[in-house]
Design a protein around this nucleic acid. Structure first.
Lengths: 186, 186
DNA sequence: CATTTTATAGACTGATTAGTCAGTCGATAA
DNA sequence: TTATCGACTGACTAATCAGTCTATAAAATG
């Protein structure tokens, strides 16, 4: 396994458990089974490591979701696909989604440049614009719709993570909650 | 002004700006204009201070919202009132709501005892149960509804905080977004 | 094969941190 | 006048931290 992978994985685990700043780089190195200095060979500062981890994790989500979204489908299917797959990934990757959440509401979030900002969000926004233009969606500010959708997704994710649900039950909740959302925005 | 008040206020400001762990107690003391030791006269550890600040801030929100909710009103009015006032407080108290958000998605959140947990949430959950029983609300798991409502609120709050809206525009958004939510859950 | 570049190690350092402690100060009361 | 109290102080310390440095080993290059 690639050392960078191990380092990021260890950092993720510790960050989620204790928070960025309460996690010393020395502990990350130990957890990863590498020397202290190796960390700083790949990342010049701890902050750089944190930002890299965020981008990396965001990237994993995108890589999971985006191939599953087909431009050919109806707008509803596109939304449904983004919705379902985002939630599924988040539930299956608990630590990763917890980290994204934690990072997003931390002051560090302001440090990531707009172009690095969440390709996920950009795609969603595109579809929203299209949906408004074609009058599939309610005529509301696009970024309000985006925020509502994103919040809805993170709400359902939290709900699914809090309880222990069978795969079947989980899919049912995802499906039903999507109908709620879809009815709300169309 | 009470020293404790000044300390909490300073801590809040710095925590929101830099994060809990990236904020040294010495800076909090300096910002508050008190001696280093004074902090530890009131709170035995830094963690104790952070937890106290969370409870204090949560309390402020409750104190703002709860008196405005009248048991006499219809269920819709109760929800509307909780919804509207929570968002209004959050927008007017940007730092405070940012802190609640930040704390809630941090590992420290697991340290607060269930009884200290958000009297706000408990009240909302009561009304949800009532709403389900009287069939005003859709027949869905109560805590799913709660999560959806809470997420919706924090979404709209984020939206309002991101842009600069006039009081009139803001109220319009709150009103319209409530109708969306209400239609969704009834 | 020789040489240069990259990867890894871990001991080390200077700065910073949470928390301590011995004592000051003003108020209240004996 | 003296004693007692407790809020408050700030210099201090032991521990910890991010990041550096030197040394080696492993790859890559030519």
């Amino acid at each position: 396994m690639d050392k960078i992978e191990v380092i990021l994985k260890s950092a993720l685990k510790l960050f989620v458990g204790f928070g960025f700043h309460a996690t010393p780089t020395s502990k990350i190195a130990k957890e990863a089974g590498v020397a202290n200095g190796t960390l700083f060979h790949y990342y010049n500062t701890k902050e750089e490591l944190i930002l890299a981890l965020y981008k990396h994790t965001q990237g994993q989500l995108s890589t999971y979701v985006q191939p599953k979204v087909s431009k050919e489908d109806s707008l509803e299917m596109v939304f449904r696909s983004i919705y379902t797959n985002t939630i599924e990934w988040s539930v299956e990757n608990k630590a990763e989604s917890a980290f994204i959440q934690q990072f997003s509401s931390s002051p560090l979030h302001s440090l990531i440049s707009p172009e690095d900002m969440n390709s996920q969000a950009a795609i969603l926004l595109d579809f929203i614009h299209e949906g408004i233009k074609t009058a599939n969606l309610k005529h509301l500010p696009a970024d309000l719709l985006q925020t509502l959708i994103t919040s809805h997704i993170s709400g359902v994710t939290q709900y699914l993570l809090a309880g222990e649900f069978s795969k079947v039950k989980q899919n049912k909740i995802i499906k039903e909650s999507f109908e709620l959302l879809w009815d709300m925005i169309t």
